[in-house]
C-alpha cells in the first residue's frame, strides 16, 4: 500500500516539481558551477514559502539570475531537455526594473506552476530572469523550437497575462541561433 506524506494531504500539490536556481558569477568558478540550486518544491504552499523568503529579482545585483525549471532540467542550453528548444524573450528597459520586473517574473512563475499552458505545459522547461545593466530580460524556455503550435500558444498566454501591466513584445529565439550569434543579430522565429 502506498503511503502519502502528511504534508501532501493538506497542501495543494503541483503537477510538476520545480527547482529554483540562483546564478552569480564568481571568478574562480566555471559558469556551470555558478548556477546554484536553492530549493525544490511541489506544492502551492511551498512555492510561496520560498518566493516570500527570497529577495525579489529587482534587488539582485547586476549580473545575477534566478531560474525556475522543472526538476531535473538545468538552466542551461546544453541540458538535453533544452538543447533543441528555445525561449520567449521579454526585454525590459532600465526603468522597468523598479516598476515591472518583479511583477512580470511572478506572473511567469504563476503561469508555470499553475500549468496555465494546459496541454502545451509539457513543452515548458522553465524560465530565467537576467538582471543586467543594459536592461533586464525574462526568458520562458521551451523544449522544441520546431513545435510552432505549442510555442505560439505559450507565447500568447504569457503576453495576455503580462498585458495586465503594460504593452510588451515577446520574441522567440531558438537556443541554437542564440549560441551561434551574439547581441542583437539573433534571428527571431516569432514575434508577438
Amino acid at each position: 500500500q502506498k503511503t502519502v506524506a502528511p504534508d501532501m494531504l493538506i497542501k495543494h500539490p503541483l503537477q510538476n516539481t520545480w527547482t529554483l536556481w540562483f546564478f552569480k558569477i564568481e571568478s574562480n568558478r566555471s559558469w556551470e558551477d555558478c548556477q546554484v540550486e536553492i530549493a525544490s518544491f511541489n506544492t502551492v504552499e511551498d512555492f510561496w514559502a520560498l518566493y516570500n523568503h527570497i529577495e525579489p529579482a529587482s534587488r539582485l545585483k547586476v549580473g545575477c539570475d534566478y531560474s525556475m525549471f522543472k526538476q531535473g532540467i538545468k538552466p542551461m542550453w546544453e541540458d538535453e531537455h533544452n538543447c533543441r528548444g528555445g525561449r520567449w524573450l521579454i526585454n525590459l528597459n532600465k526603468q522597468q526594473r523598479s516598476t515591472e520586473l518583479d511583477n512580470f517574473w511572478m506572473e511567469v512563475l504563476l503561469l508555470m506552476i499553475g500549468e496555465s499552458f494546459e496541454e502545451h505545459s509539457d513543452e515548458v522547461c522553465g524560465a530565467v530572469v537576467n538582471v543586467r545593466g543594459k536592461g533586464d530580460k525574462i526568458g520562458v524556455w521551451t523544449a522544441d523550437a520546431k513545435k510552432n503550435d505549442s510555442i505560439l500558444k505559450i507565447g500568447e498566454k504569457c503576453k495576455s497575462q503580462l498585458k495586465v501591466y503594460n504593452h510588451v513584445a515577446l520574441h522567440y529565439q531558438a537556443h541554437s541561433a542564440a549560441q551561434q550569434k551574439t547581441g542583437s543579430a539573433i534571428r527571431c522565429l516569432f514575434t508577438i
Binding site: H12, G114, E115
Partner: peptide, 18 residues
C-alpha cells in the same frame, strides 16, 4: 492522467494564507 491546473487568482489568494 488529469493535469493539476491552478488559476492565477487562486494562487495569489494562497500567497498569504497561514
Amino acid at each position: 492522467g488529469t493535469r493539476i491546473i491552478y488559476e492565477r487568482t487562486f494562487l495569489l489568494q494562497m500567497r498569504n494564507s497561514p
